[in-house]
Write a protein that binds this DNA or RNA. Structure first.
Lengths: 172, 172
DNA sequence: TCCCGAAGCATGAATTATCATGGACCGGGC
DNA sequence: GCCCGGTCCATGATAATTCATGCTTCGGGA
């Protein structure tokens, strides 16, 4: 049962999107994240806030700029996200003693507790996805994504994502 | 040369982000896309507009709702993006004769020319990435992303992305 | 034929994000 | 010690985005 010829479609095999890497990355990311983001919202966290907490979970007390890179958003946006999180009592801001231009963000006890809870959910959600995909394929996919990230970043000349690039001494 | 123990970091191996699938997907997607999105902007297209043109390139005359899915944005946003593209003379809107609730979006000659140009750039940019990654790895990555997308979508109960899911008869 | 639920879009109001800019501060050269 | 360029963060104005809702149209059942 062949579909009738559609003059508005390019010749078969000439379709672009269904095998376009950037499209596949974006859609896979969206589809895979959707379920977890819903869970995060139920925990009272919007995506940007979750990302901040996730970053602070790995390393507390980071400066605004770095936190913005880690959380995949711009500095000015992060400033405002942090502001809301301060109001909610999830984090506090504290000037860096050694360099007073810097502002460091620390989790409160409540923030830390929430972070732990949601990170646990994230791990379990991830485990579910990888179970579907297969253990070996999951590993493979992650490694390919890391490689792609590195290759693309250095091709651009832009620095690799701080959580993925080579360790950088933040202080002297 | 081991870094000094940092009390604000979780125990080694307990770090979360650097091996978290959703994070890797988001960062790889961002890093890989960055370069091309810059090119698209030089061609006068913002990301949402590029996505619309890319979708129409594969199939012209789509309805608003489907175009929104294809272009990874919400319907109300797409309506406004299309509006701007109409003003710029890239597309036209046209009510569907058979079902007057529907509005179909068609490229103008100018839009089609631009689409072809930018799709060609996208292909070339993709080729560059895959050259870095390796032909076989590129293929592998794409296949894994497709599988992940499908598995995640059906796990959520949400429909797979229309460009990736099984063909659907749009009209009777 | 008349309803009724649902699909398809558009739109207003409120929230958010972006971009450029400015103020504070640091470190090195002189 | 004093500049100067650069880093770090905040903020104001503008533009984009979302969310809920309303209007129109469709299709099927009573």
């Amino acid at each position: 049962m062949t579909a009738p010829l559609d003059p508005n479609k390019p010749a078969a095999g000439q379709e672009f999107l269904p095998d376009y890497l950037l499209f596949l990355l974006a859609t896979a990311s969206a589809a895979a994240s959707e379920g977890f983001h819903a869970r995060a919202r139920q925990a009272g966290l919007r995506v940007p806030e979750w990302r901040v907490l996730g970053s602070l979970h790995d390393q507390d007390g980071q400066m605004i700029t770095r936190l913005a890179q880690l959380s995949l958003m711009e500095q000015s946006r992060l400033t405002r996200v942090v502001e809301r999180m301060v109001d909610r009592g999830l984090v506090i801001r504290q000037g860096d003693a050694g360099d007073r231009r810097r502002v460091r963000v620390w989790m409160t006890d409540e923030g830390r507790a929430l972070a732990r809870r949601v990170v646990a959910e994230a791990r379990s959600h991830e485990a579910g996805l990888i179970a579907l995909l297969g253990e070996a394929e999951g590993r493979q996919l992650k490694d390919l994504l890391k490689r792609l990230h590195h290759l693309a970043s250095e091709a651009e000349g832009s620095a690799p994502h701080p959580a993925l690039g080579p360790a950088v001494a933040e202080d002297a």
